[in-house]
Structure formats: structure tokens, C-alpha cells
């Protein structure tokens, strides 16, 4: 099923741009949820043969990345009555241009790294690097605490994609990668929903700026 990997990765890359360019928070979260589901499918496709383990991993990824965390984020928006717009520090066009630049750089950089015979020509390495970069971009250029979480999720998805190279040789590493989702759950549940809303009327990291030089 290797031939399915690249089309899925192309879709993942397009969703990166959707997350960068969308102005409504709901759209961004939908994009992330869809990306999570695609990554789950990717786990099955990246295996040579159909195994129970692969299906379990895929289910875990889809449940966490595609359903549980997006629902938490939607819940956070409702509970804390966050305004529905994204509020970027730089404009959407500039974000998209930077995203495109990041993708180009990721492709260039991955060409300098040697790739094992069975992975030559696959999009895994450039897609992983460019998704990681997109995550960084969202993380650093958005104001709201909740969009920073989204940025972190995209970054994490990029790392997850790279894990597909190792999924058969070292499944353990890929499994623990799922633990990264634990952080997200804690951000959202422990801090955004329970604390920030109590302390501040809006959930914007602009309020989180009393500590600086």
C-alpha cells in the first residue's frame, strides 16, 4: 500500500496551508482534526502488511488527534467564549507565503540527507519537515493561547509523519510519540479551560505578558 502514502501526505500538506490561511478558529480546528485522521490512516498504509498492531496504533492516533483533542478545543472555545477569529500577528497572506517558503526549504534540506533505498522518492521526509516548520510558524505568529496549542499539534504531526520511516523497525519510538498528545490534553484541560478563563476574561496570550524584561 506504499503508493498511497504520497497522496495522503499531499493532503496533509494542503491542510497545513488551510490551517495557516483560515481566519475562523473553527476552520483551523477542523483542518487539524482531518490531518489527525489522515495520519491515522498513514500508520496502516506505511506497514507492509496488515497487522493488528498497526490497526490499534491507527485507532489510537485517530481517536486522539482526530476526535478527542479537537473536541477539547471546541469545548474550550464554547466554555471560555473565545472570539471566533484567529488574530494573527502577521497577516494571512504573509503566513501563507512563509509557509510556502518553509515547505520549499524543507524539500531542499531533505534532499541533502541520505535516504534508505526503500524510502527514495517518498514524500515522508520533506512532508515531515515542512509540517514541523508550519507548526512553528503557527506557534510563533498567533496571539491566542488556543492557536498556540494548534501550532503545537501541527508541529507534533510533523514529527509523527517522520515516525513512519521507523514504524516497522522501531515501533516503540512511534508509540511513545503518541505521548506528546498528553501535553496537549494538559494544556487545554488544565490551563486554558480551568485557569486562564478564571483569571482573565479572554484567552489571549496578550494577557500573558506581565512577565518580561
Amino acid at each position: 500500500m506504499y503508493q498511497l502514502i504520497d497522496p495522503i501526505l499531499v493532503a496533509v500538506l494542503l491542510l497545513n496551508f488551510a490551517a495557516l490561511g483560515a481566519s475562523q478558529l473553527r476552520t483551523v480546528i477542523h483542518a487539524i482534526a482531518l490531518q489527525g485522521v489522515l495520519l491515522g490512516v498513514l500508520v496502516v498504509v506505511a506497514h507492509n502488511e496488515f497487522t493488528i498492531w498497526a490497526v490499534l496504533m491507527a485507532c489510537a492516533a485517530i481517536t486522539l488527534k482526530g476526535i478527542f483533542i479537537p473536541r477539547l478545543l471546541f469545548h474550550a472555545i464554547r466554555e471560555v467564549s473565545i472570539r471566533r477569529e484567529v488574530e494573527p500577528i502577521i497577516g494571512f497572506i504573509a503566513s501563507l507565503l512563509l509557509g510556502g517558503l518553509g515547505t520549499a526549504l524543507a524539500v531542499l534540506f531533505s534532499n541533502t540527507l541520505p535516504i534508505a533505498q526503500e524510502h527514495v522518492g517518498s514524500l515522508i521526509v520533506p512532508a515531515a519537515l515542512s509540517t514541523t516548520l508550519t507548526g512553528f510558524l503557527i506557534l510563533t505568529t498567533r496571539v491566542k493561547a488556543i492557536t498556540q496549542v494548534v501550532g503545537y499539534l501541527v508541529l507534533e504531526n510533523g514529527i509523527f509523519i517522520f515516525g513512519m520511516l521507523l514504524v516497522e523497525a522501531m515501533p516503540f519510538l512511534v508509540e511513545i510519540g503518541v505521548l506528546l498528545d498528553l501535553f496537549v490534553a494538559i494544556f487545554v484541560m488544565g490551563i486554558i479551560i480551568n485557569r486562564i478563563s478564571r483569571e482573565f476574561s479572554t484567552v489571549s496570550t496578550r494577557n500573558l505578558s506581565s512577565l518580561k524584561e
Binding site: 503545537y152 490551563i191 485557569r195 486562564i196 512577565l211
Partner: peptide, 9 residues
């Protein structure tokens, strides 16, 4: 709270 947010993120 702000410090913890930055620490975790």
C-alpha cells in the same frame, strides 16, 4: 499561571 503556560509550551 503565565509562568506555567510558558514553561509547558
Amino acid at each position: 499561571l503565565e509562568a506555567t503556560w510558558k514553561y509547558l509550551l
